[in-house]
Design a binder for these strands. Structure first.
Lengths: 129, 129
DNA sequence: CCGTATCCTAAAGGATACTG
DNA sequence: CAGTATCCTTTAGGATACGG
């Protein structure tokens, strides 16, 4: 028997139960990717990250950080100060993700004119309303 | 006057109105990223893509493809066959995103053991219930 | 300061049916 | 085949209040 143990799993076939796909689902969301991009600048405290991601709620950020920590991409350290401070930092595993994330961030920064031109062309050809 | 025209916009400060951030929001979701990864293999038809992404609904895929097309990352071509066939293909702009996406896909494929180990360690230390 | 818990609303997204 | 439209359920996520 080898059916349920080996779901099809290639860059062309994202089976729902494929471990690669499940991992993809865990990090391919905007808050996770923005948190990791922010932490590329060094360890950050909770509220500092919160202020860096305009529009994120405390709850969403908390959930995102916890998931990133659980998956080993981020480490959490409680500083024995008063009041308590908590620092989040990229783990060694997380740092292996930085190259593609840096590239992606630069891409969004550098291709705004190209994308806006594409949108204008699209909107011109497709009835608005 | 230069206040509303220049929101803070760095890898450390994702202002909600920053064009880079808005573009980030448009592509940093799992379906968009999976579609682009699938189209890395060449032009694909609608239902072929659909079958490649187990769990995606016709509606979600349709919305995702339309947004990718509007942003200029993907081109849509109607083939004059009967019945009609529609082919989606990476645009030149979209292809500039491939390197980080390929890296990301390989990462999810290659780091499953590391992530699973991290999860086990995390779950061991944090009361499940 | 750093969260968790609760509530509640808004939005994403699936199922189904129907059109070009 | 490739969608659009409608309905309806599920989930994400914001606001608030409170605890460590």
């Amino acid at each position: 028997m080898k059916d349920s143990a080996t779901p099809t799993c290639t860059p062309r076939q994202f089976s729902a139960t494929c471990p690669s796909r499940e991992l993809f689902d865990q990090i391919a969301d905007k808050w996770s990717m923005m948190v990791l991009t922010v932490l590329d600048g060094g360890p950050q405290r909770f509220n500092t990250i919160r202020r860096s991601l305009e529009g994120v709620s405390q709850k969403s950020l908390s959930q995102t950080l916890r998931r990133l920590e659980r998956n080993g991409l981020v480490t959490r350290r409680v500083l024995a100060t008063a009041p308590v401070a908590v620092e989040y930092e990229m783990s060694a595993l997380g740092r292996t993700l930085l190259p593609p994330f840096r590239t992606l961030y630069r891409w969004t920064r550098d291709n705004i004119p190209a994308v806006e031109a594409a949108r204008a062309a699209f909107d011109a050809g497709h009835d608005p309303r």
